[in-house]
Write a protein that binds this DNA or RNA. Structure first.
Lengths: 195, 195
DNA sequence: GTCTATATTCAGATAGAC
DNA sequence: GTCTATCTGAATATAGAC
């Protein structure tokens, strides 16, 4: 499978680092986490860790990308599942991982800088999700599930924005129920059968 | 008016610093802005500036608080105006001040840390706005303006979250029209007269 | 691939004079 | 209220050995 032992080892170490980084951030908070600390958690020196990643910012961005890939892989297990339905589920799941949410929110705040590795990541992420959601909404409109007055793209953006904003509020106040807010909004988009 | 010349001067300098800080952040981005840089913009040394503020984090938090106070004062000029109506207007206005939005998003990402001065600021801000918005929505429901099925508090939270999330997206892509997204959501809450 | 050691850079905070 | 000077403390990144 691995072309050489060292290649497989490099990949394994990389994943180990990504997992450890998430754990340290969860414990220490994003702002106070240094590369050194993450290195210590995987028994590497700081320099040893940076052999695997170009910079601290890239490392942190890769943690997010890795998590997205895991989530996407899980979702693909059921090809029937629509993004718009899994959204509240994923968010509910995130509630167990405040460190991940903190990382997401912090990096998205830094992403406007075009030089930051998170810039590309978030731009592409928004584009992909917006497109997919808008398509699902449009399909739903054709089948009478969603209100035909909705602007699909605008609704898709709004759902993404709502999700991000809820995460910020939830970090401040973990009693907030993110999933129920999302569900209420999505429900309000459904065609109302009672009129 | 001023009890002593020095008092008035101190207040004036404080405001000058807050304005300058915003301007520097707009130019340099939040992450790369140091207290030294802001000090230079108002012809002070770094130590001279920190005579007016306890720390960098407090300074930045005060910039936001100051801007909120200005906005609130403007809104009070018309006591008829509801928060829910002025929201899209303020957001439209913010589109002219990316630095402010960047600061807001960055600090809200750091606010989960209870030791950070922004923690108290954002907690109180959310509480205040949520309460006020929920009340306006309830009033609107009584008068038949808003859909009676809405949960006022949940809708209030959602509007705040949507606003925050749109700002994140807009920083990444300034072509996004935040105000129209907000208006579409608020409109969807109105009682539909055509049924 | 990993380490040690260090270069670099820089920041926020504080002491004490004026 | 403001300055100069300095402390203190980091943290990232890199060079070069093993």
């Amino acid at each position: 499978m691995a072309r050489r032992g060292s290649y497989a080892k490099g990949v394994a170490k990389r994943e180990e680092i990504l997992d450890a980084a998430l754990e340290v951030i969860a414990r220490e908070g994003y702002r106070k986490t240094s590369v050194r600390e993450i290195a210590a958690a995987v028994d590497l020196s700081q320099a040893g860790l940076l052999h695997h990643f170009a910079s601290k910012d890239e490392l942190f961005t890769e943690v997010l990308r890795h998590r997205d890939e895991v989530d996407t892989a899980n979702a693909s297990a059921d090809p029937e599942a629509r993004l718009i339905d899994t959204f509240p589920v994923v968010v509910r799941h995130n509630s167990a991982v405040p460190g991940l949410v903190q990382l997401y929110v912090s990096l998205s705040a830094e992403a406007p800088d075009p030089m930051h590795p998170a810039h590309k990541f978030f731009t592409e992420r928004f584009d992909r999700f917006r497109g997919e959601l808008a398509e699902e909404i449009q399909d739903g409109q054709r089948e009478g599930e969603f209100n035909p007055d909705l602007d699909p793209e605008l609704a898709a953006n709004s759902l993404l924005a709502l999700t991000d904003g809820l995460q910020t509020q939830w970090l401040l106040n973990p009693a907030l129920d993110m999933a129920s807010h999302l569900e209420a909004t999505i429900d309000s988009w459904r065609s109302n059968p009672k009129s």
